[in-house]
Every structure is written in structure tokens, then in C-alpha cells.
């Protein structure tokens, strides 16, 4: 059973988002996503300052098996990236919601967050996928 923390928001692509006090949004992949991918051996983070539209491929997570895109869950500008993942991509496996965060974004329009799933909705979504 995957861990789904209460205070986060989620997308159908199995990314999580956390609204920070300064208005930036931290993005990572969920416990379900990391388990499905398997052991990560490489993460390509975006460049700070890069601008992405919602749905753009903005990062890559590669497991022992295959490479997968991470899609930008909302439009905005990258303000910070998790440099630790360059040497320790396995942080995404061991700590998907904390040390394994991937990047922070200043959203163009934060109201789109209202449309994202909360923990309860994401758990229901996961349950439907398993059916």
C-alpha cells in the first residue's frame, strides 16, 4: 500500500505538489510512482530559471529498467532544483515526499492548484487504477 501524505496535492501523472509559504510550489513524484518505476539510477532536473507550460516534460527519472518523463503539473518558472539527486537519485525511492523532491516552481497562476486532487481523492484514484 502506497503512502499518501494528507497535506499534499496530487496529479493523475503521480506527481505531488506542496504549496510553500512564499507561494512557490514544490514538485516530486509519489510513493506509488517510485515503486512502479523501481530503483532510480539517474534524475535529470530542470534548470533554475527555466519556464514551463503545464504538461511540458521538465525532468526525467530513470530507473534500472527505463526512463520516464516528469510533466510540469502547472505553468511557471523553476526557482530551485534538488541538486542532491545528481549523486543520490535513490533519494526519490527512499524519501519521495521529503528528501526526494525534484524542483520548485513559481506558478504563473496558482488557482489551478484548486483543481488538483487532495490525498483522499488521490487514494481513490489509486484504488481505481488497481481495479
Amino acid at each position: 500500500m502506497s503512502e499518501v501524505p494528507d497535506q499534499l496535492l496530487f496529479t493523475e501523472d503521480h506527481e505531488w505538489l506542496r504549496l510553500e509559504d512564499d507561494g512557490d510550489v514544490t514538485v516530486g513524484i509519489t510513493d506509488h510512482a517510485q515503486a512502479a518505476l523501481g530503483e532510480l539510477v539517474f534524475v535529470e532536473v530542470p534548470e533554475t530559471g527555466a519556464e514551463f507550460a503545464e504538461g511540458d516534460a521538465c525532468a526525467v527519472v530513470e530507473s534500472v529498467k527505463a526512463a520516464s518523463d516528469v510533466y510540469c503539473p502547472l505553468s511557471g518558472e523553476v526557482t530551485e532544483v534538488n541538486e542532491a539527486l545528481a549523486d543520490e537519485p535513490e533519494l526519490v525511492n527512499s524519501s519521495p515526499y521529503e528528501d526526494g523532491w525534484i524542483f520548485r516552481l513559481r506558478p504563473t497562476d496558482a488557482t489551478v492548484l484548486d483543481e488538483m486532487m487532495d490525498a483522499e481523492a488521490y487514494e481513490r484514484y489509486l484504488a481505481e487504477l488497481e481495479d
Binding site: V41, F42, E44, E62, A66, A67, A86
Partner: peptide, 10 residues
């Protein structure tokens, strides 16, 4: 092949 930059060859 030995990759000299970053990434994973597939």
C-alpha cells in the same frame, strides 16, 4: 561504450 557525460544509455 562507456558514457563520459551524464545520463543512461538504452
Amino acid at each position: 561504450l562507456l558514457l563520459e557525460g551524464r545520463g543512461i544509455m538504452r
